[in-house]
């Protein structure tokens, strides 16, 4: 047992209630999400299926022509296991329409374009399926800023954004996510051979532990080093969190009037709900 361990039945109960109630507040009872074949979207699909009934969940598979075919295979396996509805939208023509015409070669730019194409597909299906787009970003990657702004980070509500990767695995095992998905190395699958941990330069286990003590428990750098964390790693992570803060907030508005949106015009989204 460690500090990150959750009691999965309790978290399942809370997150299924969250999905039902926040959807209902917005006037919805159905969910749309991208299923990549990875663990985060698998977990969210499983939570949605339990919360709303599998017939009210649409899992959209959105491969690009270079995507690993295993990804789609795993997404299909998951959807069959859960009994949710699925749809495949190949984004190759859509993405290449821009990427080829503008000769975008840079790997990161190409990946961002793909992520934003997928966002467009999901938000359009949101209207067609009458379901809200459910987020699949976990706390570790949100804090690290390991996402495309307005791309995979875009959603209406996110049930797993306060769970570290370790907790994602725990809850996924509890909800019966297929072992093929649980056991493979996490990857954004934006280019061949990409893995999260390879790209980040550290493991999720290392990141989770440090982020927990740094963010949740508010430990100082000194306290973290005394706990055994490498000082350079601590500084690198702290800098990374600060540098990616822009991905975690709404766009900044220049204040001119007496009452400015989100400054002194402050209401919850559930206003009147």
């Amino acid at each position: 047992m460690n500090e990150l361990d959750i009691h999965p039945p309790l978290v399942e109960q809370l997150l299924t209630q969250f999905l039902r109630e926040e959807l209902a507040s917005a006037g919805f009872s159905r969910a749309v999400l991208g299923i990549s074949g990875g663990i985060d979207s698998a977990l969210v699909a499983a939570l949605c299926a339990r919360a709303l009934g599998p017939q009210n969940v649409l899992g959209v598979m959105m491969p690009y022509r270079t995507s690993n075919p295993d990804s789609e295979g795993h997404a299909r396996l998951l959807a069959a296991r859960l009994g949710i509805q699925t749809k495949k939208v190949d984004i190759s023509a859509m993405a290449d329409g821009y990427l080829a015409a503008h000769e975008v070669k840079d790997r990161m730019r190409r990946g961002n374009v793909m992520a934003r194409c997928r966002m467009i597909v999901l938000y359009d299906h949101s209207v067609e399926f009458k379901g809200l787009v459910i987020g699949t970003s976990n706390k570790t990657e949100i804090l690290l800023g390991y996402s495309t702004q307005w791309g995979d980070s875009a959603s209406a509500i996110n049930p797993i954004g306060d769970l570290y990767k370790h907790q994602i695995y725990q809850l996924s095992r509890h909800l019966g996510v297929p072992s093929e998905i649980l056991d493979k190395a996490p990857s954004a699958d934006l280019f061949e051979g990409q893995t999260d941990e390879g790209e980040l330069g550290f493991t999720y286990a290392e990141a989770d532990r440090l982020l927990y003590w740094m963010v949740d428990e508010r430990m100082s750098e000194q306290e973290l080093v005394a706990r055994g964390f490498d000082a350079a790693f601590v500084r690198r992570m702290a800098a990374r969190i600060a540098a990616t803060q822009f991905k975690r907030v709404m766009p900044i508005i220049a204040k001119l009037s007496q009452r400015t949106i989100n400054q002194d015009f402050r209401y919850l989204r559930d206003w009147g709900k």
Binding site: M1, N2, E3, L4, D5, I6, H7, L10, V11, L14, Y212, D216
Partner: peptide
């Protein structure tokens, strides 16, 4: 507060 393996919040 869901950490530490606790069965309640």
């Amino acid at each position: 507060g869901v950490g530490g393996g606790a069965t309640e919040l």
